[in-house]
């Protein structure tokens, strides 16, 4: 029964060793170790939480950027549309102006053409008159080269004109 009989000395020493190592380790090892592990776990948890909030913020920011982008695009579209409208209206106006101006110019041209035409006709008439006069002069000159004929004509005329 040797094996199953606890020895007093070993009992005593085991008690002493166990209690002393428990007290020493509680003060110098387990306390700091458990605290350090706990602190680190807490800091990891906090870091994870912070990462989570950062991610949420990031998503929020992203959506903000997205909406800003969309707004900017809408603004751009609006501006472009307006510009287009303005351009079209300007073009229309210009076209109208050009048309009326053209019409005016055409009218003026037509008037001056008519005037020129009238002037030219008057010129032509005058020239024709002059030409017919010169022709008539030349014809008359030819006819009065013969003295007898001249006298016959004059006599004729004189006869007709009865001196009363």
């Amino acid at each position: 029964m040797e094996l199953l009989t606890p020895g007093l000395g070993l009992f005593f020493w085991t008690l002493v060793v166990f209690v002393v190592i428990l007290l020493i380790l509680r003060k110098f090892a387990w306390g700091p170790i458990m605290k350090a592990i706990h602190d680190r776990e807490e800091s990891i948890e906090n870091a994870l939480k912070a990462a989570e909030t950062a991610r949420a913020e990031m998503a929020q920011l992203q959506s903000g950027i997205e909406s800003a982008k969309r707004e900017a695009a809408a603004e751009r579209d609006r501006i472009l549309k307006e510009a287009n409208e303005i351009k079209n209206s300007i073009l229309d106006q210009a076209k109208k102006d050009a048309q009326s101006e053209g019409a005016k110019i055409l009218e003026g041209a037509r008037e001056s053409i008519n005037k020129e035409k009238a002037a030219a006709m008057a010129e032509v008439k005058a020239q024709v008159a002059l030409l017919s006069l010169s022709i008539a002069e030349k014809v008359l000159a030819k006819k009065f080269e013969n003295q007898a004929e001249q006298e016959a004509l004059v006599n004729d005329y004189l006869e007709k004109i009865s001196l009363n």
């Binding site: 020493i24 110098f28 387990w30 700091p32 592990i37």
Partner: peptide, 14 residues
């Protein structure tokens, strides 16, 4: 052994 292992371990945390 225990004192050495665990006190040095605690110091490592510090």
């Amino acid at each position: 052994l225990m004192a050495w292992i665990f006190i040095s371990m605690a110091n490592a945390y510090k």
